[in-house]
């Protein structure tokens, strides 16, 4: 699986939510694109990840 350009092989099967929480992402400050499509926040716990998936995870930081 490709995550922000890096090849990562998590233990499948895994949901997007578990994958993100395992990597200490704060789910309230991120946006995730999977295979070119935004993943709706409400579906993180249902989305199953596959080895051919390409993820872009954006973590927002404060300031503006």
């Amino acid at each position: 699986m490709k995550v922000n350009g890096e090849v990562i092989t998590p233990l499948f099967p895994v949901t997007l939510e578990t994958f993100l929480l395992d990597r200490n992402y704060d789910l309230t400050t991120i946006a995730v694109e999977r295979n070119g499509e935004i993943v709706p926040k409400a579906t993180y716990s249902e989305v199953k990840l596959f080895d051919e998936d390409v993820l872009e995870i954006v973590q927002f930081v404060g300031g503006g």
């Binding site: 309230t28 400050t29 946006a31 935004i38 709706p40 926040k41 954006v58 927002f60 404060g62 503006g64």
Partner: peptide, 15 residues
């Protein structure tokens, strides 16, 4: 300025 607000707006607009 707040990262939660940033994420909320970006996610909602894209969705």
């Amino acid at each position: 300025d707040n990262p939660k607000s940033k994420a909320m707006l970006v996610n909602t607009v894209l969705e």
